[in-house]
Amino acid sequence: MMRNVFFIYGLAILSALALAEYRGWSLNRVDELKNVPKSVRDNPGSYRSVYGYYHHYTGGK
């Protein structure tokens, strides 16, 4: 019984892995935006990134 459960579990893990690799899943988080206007190509400054005004590390030792 336990062997069968683990067999199914292992198959599920490998299948999920294969799907993840095939579909290009990633552990990174990337924000997705819809309907970005075509005018961005002509005026890149009009686009407002959600990552703008990021607090940058200016350290060093």
């Binding site: 990174n28 990337v30 924000d31 997705e32 935006l33 819809k34 309907n35 970005v36 206007p37 075509k38 961005v40 190509r41 686009y47 990134s49 959600v50 990552y51 703008g52 990021y54 940058h56 590390y57 200016t58 350290g59 060093g60 030792k61």
Partner: peptide, 29 residues
């Protein structure tokens, strides 16, 4: 020094964008 790059990978046809930022920094001494 450091550089921060706001990136957006934008589909020209659909307007779908993947928005992210990356920082590259390197210090030595």
């Amino acid at each position: 020094n450091w550089i921060y790059l706001n990136y957006a990978l934008i589909n020209e046809d659909t307007g779908h964008a993947y928005d992210f930022g990356r920082e590259v920094s390197y210090y030595s001494g």
